[in-house]
Amino acid sequence: MDKIKLDAWVGIFVAIGVISLLGLAMKVGNLTSNDIRETYSVIAHFENIGGLKPRAPIKAAGVVVGRVKSIVFDTKAYHAVVKIDIDKRYAFPKDTFANIYTAGLLGEQYVGLEAGGDMNNLAEGDRITQTQDAVVLEKLISQFLYSKASEEE
């Protein structure tokens, strides 16, 4: 085997590998826009988080602005404490509203942020005070049946 030819083949091989990896990162994983490097974290309390999981997206106006970092249960207040990492590029007012939504009827759950009107912005370690719980399907159905039943009386 000619040494130069061999080197060339190995070079081509490595190049194809790098291109594939770049393709995976850019085209498949969308590294460029989804990559959240520097974040600040805030917490939010919910009575019920439904099926929310760590690493679920945080969206504002449909744009992913962060990820759920962790979810713990507060044994004093008996509610869920959700820690949220938000991209440093995006600032939100202190009275921002946090909702737990479901993507589609059966999709995964995410946290939606709706900006308020406060002059001060949320900072590292702050707490989002205004929250709305996840919609639990069973509750909705039972409410619906209950109201139907009371209508008929």
Partner: peptide, 14 residues
Amino acid sequence: WSQMQANVDFRYDI
């Protein structure tokens, strides 16, 4: 492509 990009995470998947 967009569904793929929205759901494949560089760090955790690739």
